[in-house]
C-alpha cells in the first residue's frame, strides 16, 4: 500500500514534479526516522542529522532508482548505507580520540574581536569552502532562488542544495561552539 503510493510519487518526482517530490520526501523522512530510531537507540542525537543526510543522498542519488522496480527496498538500502557509513565514521573518530582536531578552526575564529553579529557571520562564512560560502550567501543572505544561484555560480542545482545544507550544518556547529 505505502509502497505503491511512494513509488507513484517517486515516478512523478523523477519527471520533475516538485509537489510530488516534496510529499515523497516528507513521507519518507518519517519512515527513515522510525527506521533509524529503532536502530540507533544508543545514539539518539545522531538520528535527525542522519535523516537529513539520507534525504540528501536520496536527492543526489535518485537517478540510481530504477523506475520499474519497487521503491522501498531502494529507500531502505540508501538509509542503511548512510547509517553504516555514519557508524563507521563515529568509530573511527572515537578511535582517533583527538578532540582538538575539530576545534582548531573555531578557536582561531574566536580569537578575533568581533562585536557585531553580521561581522561575526561573515567571518564564519569565510571559513567555509567557496562553493558552500557562495551557495549560502546567494540563497540565504541575498535572497536569490536556487536556480538563480545556479545560473550565477555555474554550479548545478543539486550541488547548491547540498552545499547549502552542508554549509549551514558547519555554521550551526561553529556558532554553537563559539557561543
Amino acid at each position: 500500500m505505502i509502497e505503491e503510493e511512494l513509488r507513484q510519487l517517486m515516478l512523478m518526482a523523477l519527471d520533475g514534479h516538485a509537489a510530488s517530490y516534496q510529499l515523497l520526501l516528507q513521507q519518507t523522512s518519517g519512515l527513515i526516522r522510525a527506521y533509524l530510531r529503532r536502530r540507533l537507540v544508543r545514539v539518539p542525537d545522531e538520528v535527525e542529522d542522519l535523516v537529513q543526510e539520507t534525504l540528501l543522498a536520496i536527492h543526489t542519488k535518485r537517478h540510481t532508482y530504477r523506475r520499474e522496480e519497487p521503491f522501498t527496498p531502494w529507500l531502505y538500502a540508501v538509509a542503511r548505507y548512510k547509517m553504516i557509513d555514519c557508524l563507521r565514521r563515529r568509530s573511527q573518530h572515537e578511535a582517533l580520540n583527538d578532540p582538538f582536531d575539530d576545534e582548531v578552526e573555531w578557536l582561531a575564529i574566536s580569537d578575533h574581536d568581533a562585536n557585531d553579529s553580521k561581522k561575526d557571520l561573515d567571518k564564519l562564512l569565510e571559513t567555509l569552502p567557496e562553493n558552500q560560502r557562495l551557495s549560502i550567501q546567494h540563497t540565504k543572505l541575498d535572497g536569490l532562488s536556487v536556480a538563480e544561484t545556479a545560473a550565477i555560480t555555474g554550479m548545478s542545482v543539486s550541488a547548491i542544495k547540498v552545499s547549502v545544507h552542508r554549509g549551514m550544518k558547519t555554521l550551526a556547529k561553529m556558532w554553537k561552539e563559539q557561543a
Binding site: L14, Q22, S145, H165
Partner: peptide, 23 residues
C-alpha cells in the same frame, strides 16, 4: 537547518531525471 526546510529546498525546482543514467 530543520528537516522540513531541507525538504522544501530539495523539492523546489527539482529537475527531471533521465531514465537509464546508470546504464
Amino acid at each position: 537547518m530543520k528537516t522540513d526546510e531541507l525538504i522544501t529546498m530539495l523539492a523546489t525546482g527539482v529537475e527531471p531525471v533521465q531514465p537509464h543514467v546508470p546504464e
